[in-house]
Write a protein that binds this DNA or RNA. Structure first.
Lengths: 191, 191
DNA sequence: GCTCAAAAGCTAATCCAGTTAGCCAAGCCC
DNA sequence: GGGCTTGGCTAACTGGATTAGCTTTTGAGC
């Protein structure tokens, strides 16, 4: 029998595809194996069981997400940068719901590699907000506020938390503009 | 053998306790049955399997959450009401993480009872924001923005998304004040 | 108090995904 | 070409969900 030519990366990619298509909750060794045309036990040669599979998806997602946000921020600053990053954030969450959901889990504290990958997107946001001239000691609060808005919106949208699907774009735009206005106010009147 | 005196409500309560203590992901018939001192199959006399158990937890959580937010809003208006509701929101998410997580799932669209229960908390928020004198056609956007902030913050906090545990209270307070400022601006300068 | 039907709990058995063990072929290094 | 490593397989085991069917409690009506 010919080999399937798997690799940890290929398995992670397939797993992410399953998560995006069926939901993170439906991520299973069975489904991934099926997608790869292989029997479930074969996956153990590449990932450490279901937990390992989840970890790889989280890693992959974090890297891609950091990449996407970083690209959006590149070459822009201030409000423009935040608008671009916010749009990219939501776009990622919408088009890759499984991966996005994988970012919304607490990795084991000892897994520094995942922790580092999870941190990248936050660093992008931090860089963008620094561009607003936020004082360093206020930065944490501002990052948390912006992250909360973006994550909350993305998550509510993903889980159908918004009743009517219409005008969700407008709501998002307004929310982002609200953040920008708040950041400007903070810059103008530092405490 | 004496009867355990179960009921759908008692099972739901035990399930919610399990979810709070072990995480929603660890909610299982096994765990609930054990907590109630009963064998797993016995639960089928009261709830419709694991899916039914999850549904009951979601129902219970939604009712309690609506209750908690409603109480916080009672007797207050404007910024005070929003501050109280925001604090109650976060408090609920922190002290009952399993229940809160159960609210963050998409119920099947045909289950109107759950849908209605899920809607209650949003109605409380709507009432509070109306108290700011928001124009009706802008209300949806404002509700979404506030919900996004609150949910995002609560969720990030729950999943350990904030690096340092310190000063999280301050971050939350500032975010809420930021929302209030934004709402005031909207009221003052309607578009 | 007595009868009996419904309800509530149990055990036994089935299903399914995850996991482990161990076999065997494919590919590679010499 | 020989032999080691690797990647995939099948078979077997585990644990939780679920179903079937039994038994006992309970409570309504007499």
């Amino acid at each position: 029998m010919p080999r399937a030519g798997l690799s940890p990366a290929a398995v992670a990619e397939a797993a992410a595809a399953v998560a995006d298509a069926e939901g993170l909750g439906a991520l299973s060794l069975k489904a991934v194996a099926h997608r790869l045309g292989v029997a479930s036990p074969s996956l153990y040669k590449h990932v450490a069981g279901l937990d390992g599979l989840r970890r790889e998806v989280a890693m992959l997602a974090a890297r891609e997400f950091g990449e996407v946000l970083g690209s959006a921020a590149m070459g822009r600053s201030g409000p423009d940068a935040l608008r671009a990053v916010a749009a990219a954030y939501r776009e990622f969450a919408r088009t890759r719901p499984g991966r996005y959901a994988a970012l919304n889990t607490a990795p084991p504290p000892e897994d520094t590699e995942v922790a580092a990958a999870f941190w990248r997107p936050v660093e992008v946001l931090a860089a963008v907000l620094r561009g607003f001239g936020i004082a360093e000691r206020d930065l944490v609060d501002e990052i948390r506020a912006v992250r909360s808005s973006l994550h909350g919106f993305a998550d509510l949208e993903a889980t159908g938390g918004f009743g009517l699907p219409e005008d969700v774009d407008r709501s998002f735009d307004r929310m982002v503009e609200r953040s920008i206005a708040g950041l400007r106010a903070r810059t103008a009147a530092p405490r």
